[in-house]
Simulated scan of single mutants.
Amino acid sequence: MRRIAKTILFTSLLAMAGCSSADIIDLGSGSSNGDSAKADHGENSSSPVEKALDVLADLAQNGQTELQRALAGETLARIQAKEVLIDQVANARGVDLWHMCKDITPNDCGDRPEESSWSGTPAMRRTIVDNLDGYQWGNRLYFTLTEDTDPRNLAATLVHEVNHVLNRSECNYYQDFDTHEVDQTRAFVEEFRAFYSECWLKQGTKATVAVCREQAKQVMEELEYGMTPDFEEIMPGELNPLEQISEELINPRFWEDGSFGYLVPEFKVWPEDFDPCD
C-alpha cells in the first residue's frame, strides 16, 4: 500500500535534485517524435490517465534503455489488460475505502466492513477526498486528478503504483491490518523499490544502480516518510543493505530471485490473485 497525500503526489516525482516537470522523464534521442511527441500527449487524449498511457506507450517503443522500455511497456500492458484497475478516490467503497479511512482518519472508521458497498459517513468521505490524491490496495489504484495533471508525472506515478500492485505491497506494509500499524522495515523496502523503479523509468541512459539508489533514498527523506527500518531483521549481518537490495533488484546474485520483490511487472511474476492479505 502506498498512501499518496495531497503534499506527496507528484511532488515526489519532482523531488530529485535538478528535476523539473519539463524533464521528469528523459525521452532523449531515443524518442522518434522528440518534443512534438510530448506536446501530442497533452492534446490527443481526453483524460489525464489516457495521456499518461500515451507517454508510457511512447517510452515502450522509443525508450533509451531496455529497462526503461520494459517498465513502460509492462506497466501499460497490465493496465490495458485490466489487471490493474484505476478509479477516483471519491468512488472508493467497501474495504478499500475503510483502509483509506484507517490511514487518514482512523477514529471514524469502525470495524472492517464485509459489504462491498460500505460508504462510511459523508464527513469521513470528505476528509479522505480532501487529504488523498491517491491510494493503492490490491490491484486497485485510486487518484484525484485534474486536467492540469502533467501526464509525464502521472506516467511515472503509474509505474510506481503498479510496482506496489506487482509486489502486493499492502500485504507487507503493516504489522496489524486492523490498526494499520506499519512494519517499519518491510514498508521501507516497499517504498524504496517503487521509487527505485521510477528512477529507472525517468532517467533513461542516466540511470545506474548507484544513481537510482541515492535518488530513491533522497526522495523518501525529502518526503519525510519517517520509517526506521531494521535491516538486521531481513538481512542479518549485511553491512550495506540498500546497496545489496539495489543490486539484487537489477541482477539477483546472492539472494533468491524475488527476495526483495520485482521491478518490472511482467505477467510471469504477476500475482495469481488479490485475495485479502489476512
Rank of each mutant, 00 (worst) to 15 (best):
E214F: 03
P236A: 00
E161S: 03
V182S: 06
Y262A: 02
D275E: 14
V211S: 13
G237I: 00
C277D: 10
T146D: 13
M100K: 12
N167A: 02
K51H: 06
I234A: 01
N107K: 09
K51I: 08
I104H: 10
N131Y: 13
T65S: 05
G42V: 09
A22D: 14
L9I: 12
Q244H: 03
E43W: 08
M100A: 12
P236I: 01
G226D: 12
E43R: 08
T146K: 06
A57S: 11
E224S: 13
M1P: 13
H41R: 03
E232V: 10
R186G: 05
K82D: 13
Q80A: 08
A60H: 03
H99R: 10
E114L: 10
K82E: 15
T121Q: 15
Q80I: 08
G30Y: 07
G261L: 01
V159K: 02
F10W: 08
I104W: 09
A216I: 06
A57Y: 07
N33A: 12
S259P: 03
T127S: 15
L9N: 15
A57D: 13
H41N: 07
E147L: 11
I234Q: 00
F274C: 07
S119Y: 11
L145C: 05
G237T: 00
A216W: 04
G30M: 08
H99C: 05
F192H: 05
Y142W: 12
P271I: 05
E248T: 00
H164A: 00
V159F: 04
A72D: 01
M235D: 00
L154S: 02
T205Y: 13
R112I: 10
D183P: 09
C109P: 13
A194M: 04
E83D: 13
R253V: 09
Y196G: 10
